[in-house]
Design a binder for these strands. Sequence first.
DNA 1: CCGGTTTTGGCAACCGGTTGACAAAATCAG
DNA 2: CTGATTTTGTCAACCGGTTGCCAAAACCGG
Lengths: 356, 356
Amino acid sequence: MIEADSTPDAESTLPVSTRGARRGRPAATIYDIAKLAGVNPSTVSRALSKPGRINVKTEERIHAAAKELNYRLNPMARALPTGRTNSLGLLLADITNPMFFNVVRGAESAASKRGYTLLLAESQESSEREAAAAERLSPSVDGLVLVTSRLSDEEIVELADQRPLVVINRKVHGIPGIVPEIGPGIEQALAHLGALGHTAIGFVSGPVNSWMNRARWAELLERAPALGMTIVEIGPGKPTLDGGAATLARVVASGVTAVLAYNDLMAIGLMRAAQESGIDVPGKLSIIGFDDIFGSDFTSPQLSTVRTPLGAIGDRAVRLMMQLLDEDAGAPPHRDAEVALVTELVVRGSTGPAAH
Amino acid sequence: MIEADSTPDAESTLPVSTRGARRGRPAATIYDIAKLAGVNPSTVSRALSKPGRINVKTEERIHAAAKELNYRLNPMARALPTGRTNSLGLLLADITNPMFFNVVRGAESAASKRGYTLLLAESQESSEREAAAAERLSPSVDGLVLVTSRLSDEEIVELADQRPLVVINRKVHGIPGIVPEIGPGIEQALAHLGALGHTAIGFVSGPVNSWMNRARWAELLERAPALGMTIVEIGPGKPTLDGGAATLARVVASGVTAVLAYNDLMAIGLMRAAQESGIDVPGKLSIIGFDDIFGSDFTSPQLSTVRTPLGAIGDRAVRLMMQLLDEDAGAPPHRDAEVALVTELVVRGSTGPAAH
DNA sequence: CCGGTTTTGGCAACCGGTTGACAAAATCAG
DNA sequence: CTGATTTTGTCAACCGGTTGCCAAAACCGG
């Protein structure tokens, strides 16, 4: 049997670090290519990044040399003079909330399609940690995308002063943001509950510093009375299963026959807590969540919920970021009008006729 | 005659890009600090990164100046000469598989604790895309972590030749890897099924190029006969809800009374398909999944599953990577023996007495 | 064949740090 | 107080690209 580990002595003559490659060749540079192709390094740089600037014949020769040396551009070396890193920072409130999966996927695929890389950080629902993470990511990226940020408006504006920034699920004055239209989904949800005979509704609210939480509540508050319904806020609570479960006593005490919860996690938590207490869902209590996360159709009954086009939101956010970056680079403001990001009610089993 | 190069605006005097900051100051450098503190830039560099190398008094002065200018180090500028980027690449097979959430969280928190940043990419279960993503990430990171890689052993070895690399859920000769002990969980699962009277077992298998899929199957194959059980492989299939559902006909046809599925997603997919076909779970068919992902306790019945310590695995993987990097930098091989990553059966509702 | 225009490629400075080598200053031993 | 030693800070080169400027080369119409 052969030992994979060879003696490290040969490496001792190498410079400071093994740079680039660990064992293999020390990674080709444009200087190596230049030597091989018999031209100046700057010509190589141009051939590789400014197609057309160089004579076709020469360009070919350079490309051939690059291929032969298995050249890959050093992103750091390029970033230093240009200031462009070709990467985006994505800051999430809580990685384990399935809501983020689709946002991340949408963002990742849009980014990698444009040759951008995603740097990821999570704040675990803490604004301090989020600020720290933003601080850490900021110098290494071209732009920052904040998903469901827990930062204050002021902090966000300050951050946007350093780097192009896009917020998701939030509106901050002067900051580009991607927010789905919550109106349609909420309208449908209320209409649905109304048709089932519910007149006393509750809103199980999430984190106070969540913009989306306030937006949903505001929308409900505005629309419910017009439909002849009463509505009360129950919360705030943590946007988790436990957070939802914890509101059960208050929900019961409030006398409402249906609730909308800030998100699916809370809705499911509440539903399970209710069932454990012998409260039938939807027999005694109808529950509607928000987002339509993974697993919301696993429950029994399956959760009725207001679906948010999470993947599309992630995609749109990075495309918007690309536009901002292009504009910064001098391109025309091409901000194209895209299809709307609309929410819609998905009726499943957790809503039923009001018990009276 | 007008100068060919008539100045469009004040910006033309600026360097290439607006570098660093968008609106705010152009971001302080060690040169600014040096000027302010009245020392040489190299002294600033040392004061900031080699504590003790510089006179305490001077160091203080420099730190004060740095703080005053709100200095932050430019990661790219540091990475260029040192080759160290202080970031790790994390490559996932499928972001939307909840299995990865906890791995990512574990990895992210371990990384950010050590001042490292995570670069994320997903391969969407495609080995070509995975190779491309690895290629793209590789030059910008100090190390690569492959989670449930779909690459061939050869490709992985080749990748490891360029960068320190750690694989999760896989063993490749000569490549450091983090793999949970699947033995205990499987032993418990089989014992559990045996106690319930099951003698004909099925394994709903996942992707052929998944090492973990083969490992689980091999373990089952070895242990089942010794327990007086027959076992058959049903698959391969995609590691998704649909992939699991698609195996229903074959599961039924095989005559087994219990199955273990490659992962929870397939298990849940199969369970739902079975229920839709009027097959009672666990009355007619017992089902056990793997991993204990988010949502596996949402189903009805809740899924019995072999839990994998996913968060701990992510954490361990980046800590192992840190050790590799430290060693590369000349530190002693300190590879400490950690607590084992053991799997265990979580008995819930999807398993019951064999119907015969 | 000539002067003028356009292409093409080289030169050199620069991005913002790091580090080996070295000299000046401070400290110490005798 | 002197010479040896240690501490401290400066100099300059370097990492690997990018780009403004310029001169040489190629091309053009007449």
